[in-house]
Design a protein around this nucleic acid. Structure first.
Lengths: 234, 234
DNA sequence: AGTATATTATGACTTACAGTCAATTACTAA
DNA sequence: TTAGTAATTGACTGTAAGTCATAATATACT
């Protein structure tokens, strides 16, 4: 039965074209000012057809988010391929996530939008939401692998469970990048003139500090070590 | 002219009553399913009147967010009053923020919602948005104070600027709590059955690890690379 | 007091858009 | 060819945010 399969394929293609159109419209404007009518027009379809492929506007946006997450997952998979120490893998994961957000701010925004809708909407019931959830688990699993490697090669302290730690890394860096993106956007509109921070460095420093906390290290009587270096400029 | 002042006062009271009503309606349901009509009814006013006090629904929600932030700011101010070492202050800040989110999940949600709308809407232009921005600066300033104290008493490493570090702490913990809240909500709906984490401990451990990274410490030989980096002032 | 003016409140109305569905068109199979 | 099925359409519905002419009420003035 080749016809069934061809139809299946065609359906998948059309679905993909709709997402393409949606991206073009939404990324050029904003999600809240883009209408299903516009997207339909861009896709050269009628509005009704959109609803044969996506059960709501949010659902369509979830599909966009999923694309972004797939890109990120690929990038992380590649990092895991590099044979490095666990702690270095985590550092690379962090950098890659940050790069991703810079390279695809629209996908990152989509992720943030969808997350906020987890709070306020019944997205949780959506089938597509389940997909993005799986993608997120996939992403976190890369982190878990990295942590496990680090535990084995001794580059990561042993008092935290990989599942917990992976969540921490993902969540905290996500929050960090979120603020990063907001401030960058704000700067575009000439807000936040009060303190100009080198945001890129802040994120990088954050990764460094967080990983410092992860290293197995001995704490010393702090004052004695640093008293001598009391006048550090920065 | 006491009349002007009385009117001013009355206006403020009414405004406050509207926010009260909005909270009752929105917190009992959700922001997306609550209508201005409902809120007006709850406030025993007409819809039009609401728009004399708030220029949009989002604006009204921003006012709710602002209340939450004020509560948080108060809590943080109280912590700063406790005379402690800088690093301990930061720990307390973290714990207090976490407590706040648990105690007032609705306010925290409002914060998340409004943040996501910074991405997608022209809230930035709103006067009220400027207020919440100031509140956020106020909150971050408490962190800066704590860090400065820590730098002076030597309990915090010296290679990061207070402005930068405060942003990191705020942003990362925010991301962490965000995920915490989402999973708690998901658990309520019996999602995420795959891995049961003790979420409360994850957050507490996160704070610990992050602060470990902040302590001035010596790293063991195997991590010499990171030790070097760590001591380079940005 | 009564009257003019300013302030505040109202709710019917407009507008916009998400989502639906009966009707239409395009395919498939016999 | 034709009956049957699947995909597509766009006019239609419902809803809710936001507006505005009108009304009610408070203040100031003579």
């Amino acid at each position: 039965m080749g016809i069934q399969e061809r139809k299946e394929r065609e359906r998948e293609t059309r679905r993909s074209m709709i997402i393409d159109a949606a991206e073009r419209v939404i990324f050029a404007n904003r999600i809240d000012t883009s209408t299903m009518e516009q997207i339909a027009e861009e896709a050269e379809l009628s509005k009704g057809t959109l609803y044969l492929y996506f059960k709501s506007k949010t659902d369509l946006y979830l599909a966009i988010q999923e694309r972004g997450m797939s890109i990120l997952a690929d990038k992380l998979a590649r990092v895991l391929g590099e044979k490095r120490k666990g702690i270095e893998l985590l550092k690379r994961f962090g950098e890659v996530y940050f790069d991703y957000a810079n390279q695809y701010p629209n996908y990152f925004n989509a992720e943030m939008f969808c997350r906020s809708h987890e709070f306020i909407e019944e997205v949780t019931a959506s089938e597509l939401f389940q997909c993005t959830r799986e993608k997120r688990i996939e992403i976190v699993n890369f982190l878990i692998r990295g942590i496990q490697i680090g535990l084995q090669d001794g580059s990561i302290r042993r008092d935290v469970k990989p599942e917990e730690l992976s969540l921490m890394l993902y969540a905290s860096l996500n929050g960090m990048i979120q603020v990063y993106m907001l401030r960058r956007q704000a700067e575009k509109h000439d807000l936040f003139p009060e303190v100009k921070l080198d945001l890129d460095h802040v994120v990088q420093d954050f990764i460094r500090i967080l990983l410092d906390g992860l290293s197995p290290h001995t704490l010393t009587d702090s004052q004695s070590v640093y008293a001598t270096q009391a006048l550090i400029p920065s």
